[in-house]
């Protein structure tokens, strides 16, 4: 059984990829995920300048998964080079995706130009964080035309493969994905968190997150993410990093059948810690054996053949 994936020319030994925002603050932490079985990793989203993010509480669990308003903290693209170098020392050949964003299109282009020179295999454009609306307005990925313009502009300055990370909070995600493809995106990462949502503590009688609202992920997001991946697979030819509430092997297989080639993993860490990467890959192998598949690529998008 072959579970390795060739994705935009990059060799992933297995389909699990640490999703952006999880354990991506330092290069050593990303390498630790590789050592624990991740097929690849995505760094934390970087802007031009360092950002402290929102004050705590920023990350909370609830019975449906996670809600977070970390607020895109990060050390800034220029300081970030140390972490990518550290990662490369510790994991020379492992696939590394650099995630970037900008306060506006001009900044996004500048950050993209810098990231293109870094030792990353692919660049993910985070067009879809729902936690910074007050500061930056609606996410780019919530508007098909803004998405088109962003991909077009970044494509001009970036040689490395680009994946557009999309938001589930849209009317028709297929159109957004198609626009990204038309302007030269090499892949789609779907999806970012949904919402925003809110949790209120009944004894304190106030929202718990300091930002009041935050993106919802985990089990609550999963069925929505599956539908988004399904719709995107129908709309475009480029491959998909399917992300959203993959907690176990069954969820992962569901995402592959919907059309995902790689699997973004995050919330599963809360359930099985860093073993989750190996557990998910093992479960996929077991399924392939039971169902008679020899290569994982044979399974991608099979839910569409009905």
């Amino acid at each position: 059984m072959n579970v390795s994936v060739k994705f935009c020319g990059i060799d992933f030994p297995n389909p699990t990829v640490l999703a952006s925002g999880y354990l991506g603050v330092t290069g050593a932490s990303l390498a630790n995920c590789i050592n624990n079985g991740a097929g690849g990793v995505t760094g934390k989203t970087l802007f031009m300048e360092p950002r402290p993010g929102h004050p705590n509480p920023t990350v909370l669990t609830f019975p449906g998964g996670l809600i977070n308003a970390v607020g895109l903290c990060g050390e800034g693209i220029k300081n970030g080079i140390h972490e990518f170098k550290k990662f490369r020392e510790m994991a020379p050949d492992a696939p590394l995706i650099g995630s970037i964003a900008g306060k506006n299109l001009k900044e996004l282009i500048e950050v993209a130009e810098i990231m293109d020179t870094y030792p990353v295999d692919m660049i993910e454009l985070n067009l879809s964080c729902p936690n910074v609306d007050d500061e930056m307005g609606r996410p780019i990925a919530c508007d098909p035309l803004m998405t088109r313009d962003a991909i077009k502009a970044v494509r001009k300055v970036v040689k490395k493969p680009i994946s557009a990370k999309l938001s589930p909070n849209v009317q028709n995600i297929g159109i957004v994905a198609k626009n990204a493809e038309n302007e030269g995106a090499d892949a789609i990462t779907a999806v970012n968190t949904m919402g925003p949502g809110m949790l209120i503590d009944i004894k304190m009688r106030r929202p718990i997150l300091s930002n009041k609202v935050g993106g919802v992920s985990g089990m609550a997001l999963h069925p929505i993410a599956v539908r988004c991946v399904y719709d995107i697979y129908k709309a475009v030819q480029i491959p998909i990093i399917a992300t959203g509430g993959i907690m176990n092997g069954k969820d992962a297989i569901e995402m592959i059948l919907a059309g995902g080639s790689l699997l973004g993993i995050g919330c599963a860490i809360t359930a099985n810690d860093l073993n989750c990467f190996t557990m998910i890959t093992d479960k996929i192998r077991e399924y392939m054996k039971e169902e008679g598949f020899t290569d994982i690529s044979e399974m991608v998008g099979l839910a569409h053949e009905i």
Partner: peptide
């Protein structure tokens, strides 16, 4: 930030 091992804020180099 999170306190339970997912956000990566407290990871130590080495």
């Amino acid at each position: 930030k999170c306190g339970f091992g997912i956000c990566g804020q407290c990871c130590i180099d080495g």
